[in-house]
């Protein structure tokens, strides 16, 4: 996200935003950037995973690329947490969604605790891999930047 340029509003002292306002703006930018990243990542993972002929882990590749892009574009995204949450949402949410629309045909055979563990585990797998993939991409690019 673009940093606030010095002096743009500096000449008009009456309109100078307060520190509180600037912090809020910054927070909003960051918040919306992470939200946007969350939605985009979830959409990309879903798209990749829906291509059933590809190996199950194919979504990792665009995630690594996404991490690289985040650095190049200087987007202010918390890669691992956002990636983890998006991956978790797709994997756990996907299982939960299909569990509901298929009438609980598979997980319904397990007792509640085990079914919840299965869904949680799916979420953790998706979350860990997505978060790590984004972070790996980001770390890769940050290494190439001059110190």
């Amino acid at each position: 996200m673009k940093k606030l340029k010095k002096g743009v509003a500096g000449n008009l002292s009456l309109n100078k935003p307060s520190l509180k306002y600037m912090k809020k703006q910054h927070f909003m930018h960051k918040y919306s950037a992470n939200l946007l990243a969350f939605v985009s990542i979830a959409a990309i993972i879903t798209f990749c995973m829906k291509i059933e002929v590809l190996p199950w882990w194919t979504f990792i590749i665009p995630m690594v690329a996404g991490g690289i892009l985040i650095v190049i574009k200087k987007w202010n995204v918390a890669c691992f947490p956002v990636g983890f949450l998006a991956g978790f949402a797709v994997w756990a949410g996907g299982n939960l969604y299909y569990h509901n629309i298929y009438g609980g045909a598979i997980l319904g055979r397990l007792d509640m605790g085990n079914a919840a563990i299965a869904i949680l585990f799916a979420g953790i797998i998706g979350g860990l891999l997505t978060g790590l993939a984004l972070y790996t991409g980001k770390a890769f690019m940050q290494e190439r930047k001059p110190a």
């Binding site: 879903t46 829906k50 199950w56 882990w57 969604y97 299909y98 298929y102 045909a105 598979i106 585990f121």
Partner: peptide, 18 residues
């Protein structure tokens, strides 16, 4: 293999879509 089995789009949950 949990990655495949718990994949929401091709894993065991899809066997519910008989």
């Amino acid at each position: 293999p949990l990655g495949k089995v718990l994949d929401p789009f091709i894993g065991v949950i899809q066997n519910g879509n008989d």
